[in-house]
Amino acid sequence: MPRRTAERRLVPGDVVRAAAVGSLAVGIVTFGSVAGALFFLVLGGVLVPRFLRLPAALDLCFGSSLLLAAWASQLGWYEAVPWLDLLVHAVCTGLVAVVGVIIMTRGQMLEVGAHPRRAKAGLVAITSAIGALSAIVWELGEWVGHTYLDEGIDVGYSDTIADLAFGLSGAMLAGLALAAQDQAWGRGHDI
């Protein structure tokens, strides 16, 4: 019985999920179907940490960053503050990479090695690779959105290369942060 109670307990990330539901409704009514599609994707994303029962801090950061990224797009913040787009790419990609590593670790696709130093180097590499892949998928999504949904979505060679560079940098930093966590990596504990 206590386990069921713990499963139903609200966590800070649930506030973000509620905001994502509200954002979906507001986005559709205020900005139209393209914004609705964006907020629908965000809603799906913010559900992932709850489903995976990720630590509360990661849940909150992950969901908040996705929601911020979507609202920044809709409210024109990227045009008003040009560096914000690059920061969002770094933070979101890093967090997506961390969640990807956790999924792979829990699914036993990655294993904590007997050699912590090599395991840490591998963790940085795989986190960077997951981040690079997610950055590429993100940029493909931007291109598809620009080409088929809304020409106002900013794409172009310089924008894409900068977004990829910052996304990869964020993933590499996230990998270094994961590797630095002795309690989570190299001692046999689940991430």
Results as ranks from 00 to 15, higher is better:
Leu86Trp: 06
Arg9Ile: 00
Leu52Trp: 07
Val15Leu: 15
Ile130Tyr: 05
Val88Leu: 11
Val29Asp: 11
Ala56Ile: 07
Thr5Tyr: 09
Val101Arg: 02
Val101Met: 01
Gly113Ser: 14
Arg53Asn: 14
Trp77Phe: 11
Pro12Asn: 08
Leu10Lys: 02
Leu52Asp: 07
Val21Met: 10
Leu84Tyr: 07
Arg50Gln: 12
Met104His: 09
Trp71Asp: 05
Arg17Val: 15
Gly100Phe: 04
Gln108His: 13
Met104Phe: 15
Gly76Gln: 05
Leu47Gln: 14
Pro49Arg: 07
Thr105Leu: 10
Ser64Lys: 05
Val91Met: 01
Arg117His: 11
Pro82Val: 08
Gly27Lys: 07
Thr93Trp: 01
Val21Gln: 08
Ala20Ile: 03
Ala114Met: 06
Val112Gln: 15
Gly94Ala: 01
Arg106Pro: 05
Ala121Glu: 03
Ala80Met: 10
Gly76Asp: 10
Ala114Gly: 06
Ala18Val: 12
Arg4Cys: 01
Tyr78Asn: 10
Val34Tyr: 15
Arg117Gln: 14
Ala20Lys: 03
Arg106Ala: 07
Trp83Ser: 12
Ala72Asn: 10
Gly113Leu: 02
Ser23Gly: 15
Leu41Met: 13
Val46Cys: 03
Cys92Gly: 08
Trp83Val: 13
Leu52Thr: 04
Gly113Gln: 09
Val124Trp: 04
Ala18Gln: 04
Ser33Trp: 14
Phe40Glu: 07
Gly22Thr: 11
Leu75Glu: 12
Val81Pro: 02
Val42Cys: 10
Phe51His: 15
Ala97Pro: 00
Arg9Gly: 05
Phe62Val: 02
Pro55Thr: 04
Met109Gly: 14
Thr93Met: 04
Phe40Met: 13
Trp83Glu: 12
Leu58Asp: 02
Val11Glu: 15
Ser33Leu: 14
Thr93Asn: 13
Val21Lys: 07
Ile130Glu: 02
Gly122Lys: 00
Phe31His: 13
Leu67Pro: 05
Arg106Ile: 06
Ser65Pro: 03
Pro116His: 01
Tyr78Asp: 07
Phe31Asp: 13
Leu43Phe: 11
Leu54Asp: 03
Phe39Trp: 11
Arg8Lys: 10
Glu7Thr: 04
Pro82His: 03
Ala119Thr: 15
Ser73Glu: 13
Ala119Phe: 09
Ala129Val: 14
Ala70Thr: 09
Phe40Tyr: 13
Ile102His: 03
Ala129Thr: 15
Gly100His: 00
